[in-house]
Design a binder for these strands. Structure first.
Lengths: 343, 343
DNA sequence: ATGAAAGCGCTAACAC
DNA sequence: GTGTTAGCGCTTTCAT
């Protein structure tokens, strides 16, 4: 069935040269006679020769592949980065191997091993957990280029591209407080994820610096999908004394909160004020428009690629840990609480 | 720096057996003495041996990799499918190589070649163009498993998983007509994309079967991103005699239309009715909720994987061309036109 | 049950 | 300028 592929030998034979010469002509290195080169190229073309990158890789020790491991490719944040990385990598003639960890630490370890054994040249990873780092440490120790995105791990000595989660959350919650809210809910994802920790820390700081006590019953954990967040929102607002405002830690959860609140008949911002981390397409379409903490998402993928390629090309610089600032984009989803919070 | 990896030879030596025996023990085939096997496994574990999949691939002729080529990974439709494919492929211990064609036919050809030379075992692709099929025909001819998703190409003899674009569009537009609209705009993507053709055909059929003439000035082409669609919408509604309703061919464009209309002060559905192809998370959050043609998206990725793996496992069945029906989900974005169309 | 050895397709050091 | 050749790490046939 599958006709065996044309190999370098076939080309060499057809061009009446040795494999070495054929390879030189094809890859354009070393000395090759113009005449021979032409014959080789012609033969390759005629025969439909495609180099076998696996064989090349075995010989050279590496495959021009980059592993990208987001928490969830369906999250628009990661999809955008995947896109940007894919595009930028093309300039380096590298392909992208995407394997989502599904936010499962074990799966992250397994997939990483699996990709390592493919001799990929480097990784861009959004680590699922702050506690799960041995495999990454090992990776770095073995000299494999790695850049962490979205979530940095101080204990792993590698480049990272993140955002000021703490500051962003603090700004969002402070804004809510400045608008008179004191009972502010937090819908966040699993606290082993470092961004969740940072955003939680920002939330707590904002509260405490305004003398507001942190009420655990206002904090709820959800997986980062619209469906789970709807559910979490409903649970949060079904509790005896509900918050007057809520802060969500990513765009999928913001959308879930929106949907959840609506299903309970709670209008934004009249009944409940809302601020979300991470902007999204329809944030300005909803009525009201949603106030968000925007991240400079367009810069993340490109910088990650740049740092990674520098490592691949042998850079020995100390880790570059980029942390971009966030920006509070005030729209219309926050108003003063309509009445004093119940109890 | 990078300590050279532990190879099979190291393991064999440590276990005092030959490479052959070590390989047999590690891969669990052939006859291996229980004793030897144990020593090998222990040695492998102690040394931290990881098989070199590139070498295996060179030997076996294939890499357990599947190439996935969507038009745009940022489109939630493709992101969802990528996710489902990734997950299902894991059961077969295959990894996913995602390379977005960016809806560029040339790039599609190039990337496909590039992935082919990696000896990937099969492809799942959403072809960018109905006119650009030679490379796919060649792929199939060479016996490489291929399944087309979202967009089928009758001339390419391979499995495909699509949706009834024509029927879905016809139903949407008929619904608009049933609500009294006669000047119905169409915001679609490049007509070389087969889904665009199908949806356009459905649009035209619905119009004609109700005796409405097709007005080219109501059809506008946009790239499939929110930004481009906003722009297209504004252009469409800036024309002298604007439509009273509009049909958009994917969810990103639907969102763009929503944003564009709002920016022009045109309320949905009072000033303009709207139906979009492909459902999306916030379709029920917007006010009004958006009426859409829903696709059974959860079935696409899994079926594509199933078909592909069957081919990889040698199936010689004639091409399975699945075409799922769509479903019109009536929500609130359509009303009767407020006044007779101008002109 | 185990080992020896051929060879997957390619690159690059070395020889001519 | 071109050819020869030794592997890269692994699987697998063929002996034993």
């Amino acid at each position: 069935m599958a006709p065996k592929a044309v190999t370098l030998i076939d080309v060499a034979r057809a061009a009446n040269v040795s494999r070495a010469t054929a390879a030189r002509a094809l890859n354009g290195y070393g000395y090759v006679g113009g005449d021979a080169a032409e014959r080789v190229l012609a033969a390759a073309d005629r025969l439909g020769y495609r180099s076998n990158r696996v064989a090349q890789a075995l010989r050279r020790g590496q495959l021009p592949l980059i592993g990208f491991m987001p928490g969830d490719i369906q999250n628009p944040f990661f999809a955008r980065i995947a896109h940007d990385v894919d595009v930028d990598l093309r300039a380096f003639r590298h392909n992208l191997l995407i394997a989502s960890s599904e936010e499962d630490p074990e799966q992250e370890v397994e997939l990483l091993e699996s990709l390592r054994s493919l001799n990929v040249r480097g990784f861009i990873v959004a680590p699922t957990s702050a506690d799960n780092k041995e495999h990454l440490v090992r990776l770095v120790r073995d000299g494999t280029p790695l850049v962490l995105i979205d979530r940095a791990l101080p204990q792993v000595a590698c480049d990272s591209v993140t955002v000021d989660n703490e500051g962003g959350a603090r700004e969002a919650v402070s804004y809510l407080i400045a608008n008179g809210h004191r009972r502010i809910g937090l819908i966040q994802d699993d606290s082993r994820i470092t961004t969740a920790r940072g955003r939680l820390a920002g939330y707590i700081q904002a509260l405490q610096s305004h003398g507001i006590e942190v009420d655990e019953s206002l904090i709820i954990v959800s997986r980062s999908t619209v469906e789970y967040a709807i559910d979490a929102t409903i649970r949060l607002f079904s509790r005896p004394s509900r918050p007057t405002a809520v802060f969500t830690v990513d765009s999928l959860m913001t959308q879930g909160a929106l949907l959840g609140l609506r299903s309970m008949g709670l209008a934004v911002p009249h009944a409940v004020s809302l601020v979300g981390f991470d902007d999204f397409n329809l944030a300005t379409f909803t009525d009201p428009q949603i106030t968000v903490v925007a991240q400079p998402i367009a810069q993340i993928g490109p910088l990650a690629v740049k740092l990674l390629m520098q490592r691949i090309n042998g850079s020995r610089e100390p880790p570059h840990r980029e942390q971009f600032p966030t920006r509070l984009v005030v729209r219309g989803s926050v108003s003063r609480p309509s009445r004093t919070p119940g109890r």
